[in-house]
Simulated scan of single mutants.
Amino acid sequence: MSDPSTASIVSTPAAQPTDTPATPGPQGNEKPRGLLGDAWRDLRRKPLFWISATIIVIFLLMAAFPSLFAPGDPVNGALSRSLNKASGDAWFGYDLQGRDVYARVIYGARASIVVAVLSVVGTLLVGGFMGIISGYLGGWVDTILSRVADVFFGVPFVLGAIVILTTFNGSGSSNSKAEIMGLVIISLIVLSWPVVMRLMRSSVLSTKEADYIVAARALGAGSGRIILKHLLPNCLAPLLVYGTIMVGSFIGAEATLSFLGVGLKSPVVSWGIMISEGKDFIRVAPGLVFFPAAFLVAAVLSFVMLGEAVREALDPKLR
């Protein structure tokens, strides 16, 4: 007599292979995402990102098309309207020379944002190039570039900018608007590139010994191809975060230098110049300082908040 348990095992039909493909899950058809794809997916869920990005877009539109926001004249005024209060024609009132404060605040976004964006681009290019060369080549090249960066680190930012701008843009100089803006941009780049250089250098040092870099080098890839195809794309995340925050910092730096009288100068319209011109009338007309300062703070905070949101999205440990 056969064992019932054995009979039941024998009588159970074996599982037969089937040709029917498995039904994919809800994510079965999704393509794998890279670092930027994951970061964008995480950013879309953050209210902080949308709030800061919306404010930045508004400021960029103000800088590109100021006449859409303020049809008034920001440069010419009438002394008969000197220090007049806010009205339907001038929402923020008039300054000492009878100029529309609202129009000047709107047009002031252009100079501040242009100087900040161009300075950031230049700083990222110069510092990024120095950092990737220093980190990849190493040796005496790394030593020399690191010591040069240490020299610039030792110069106080505001003091160094004052020295550079007063030397090439003194009170007796007759530089044009473009030349003055160029000097401010160059001074910001000269004093800020070592930070970017160190960020890029540390990223390259932690990446250049990765397996895919070693494999590319073993397959005969040259240094240029390794840097452009492998190192650079994988070292950009820290620069994106720092560059976004640095735009806000440079907007504040330009306003500080213009307030001190060594940055942009009239007839250029910027928030720093407006604050400098209105500080003597803060008791009589506080709006001359309050309104450009409010726009300045909003612009700086929006870029800082965007940089913080990008940092959290690009860092997997903070998600």
Rank of each mutant, 00 (worst) to 15 (best):
S134Y: 00
D89V: 09
Y94T: 04
G128C: 06
Y94I: 03
G72N: 15
G160N: 02
D73F: 02
I164M: 15
L79N: 12
R81E: 15
I162Q: 04
P74T: 06
F152M: 14
N84Q: 14
V120F: 01
I132Y: 01
S82D: 10
V163M: 08
G108I: 03
L145H: 06
G138K: 06
D100C: 11
L118R: 02
P74M: 08
G77D: 08
V163R: 01
V117T: 11
F157A: 13
R104Q: 15
L137C: 06
V75Y: 11
G160F: 00
V115M: 09
S112A: 10
A109I: 01
A161N: 08
N84H: 12
F92C: 07
T123R: 06
L79A: 12
V126N: 07
A111Q: 15
R104T: 04
V105H: 02
F152L: 13
A78K: 14
I144T: 14
V75D: 13
G160T: 02
Y107N: 14
Y107W: 05
Q97K: 12
A90P: 00
S80Y: 09
K85N: 13
V163A: 13
S82T: 04
A109P: 06
R99S: 09
W91D: 08
R110V: 00
P71V: 05
V151W: 02
A116V: 03
S82I: 00
D142E: 13
D95R: 03
V101A: 05
V151Q: 02
F92I: 04
D150I: 02
L83N: 14
A111G: 10
G131C: 08
I164V: 14
S134E: 02
I133V: 15
L165G: 03
R110I: 00
L96M: 12
G122Y: 05
A149C: 09
F152N: 10
I162K: 07
L145R: 10
A109M: 10
I133G: 07
A103L: 04
F153R: 10
P71L: 09
L137F: 11
I132T: 12
G77C: 06
V101L: 14
T143N: 15
G131Y: 00
G98E: 10
G128D: 09
L159S: 08
M130D: 03
F157P: 05
A111R: 08
G122K: 07
Q97V: 01
A78E: 15
L137N: 02
G72H: 12
F129V: 14
V121L: 13
I132Q: 05
G88N: 13
Y94E: 11
G135W: 00
V141R: 08
I132W: 02
G108P: 06
L137P: 00
A149L: 05
F129P: 10
N76K: 14
Q97E: 14
P74S: 09
A78V: 12
R81M: 15
L159I: 14
G131W: 03
R110W: 04
S134L: 00
S80Q: 13
A103F: 00
T143S: 15
V151D: 03
D73I: 02
F153T: 05
D142P: 02
V148D: 11
V148A: 15
A86M: 12
G138P: 04
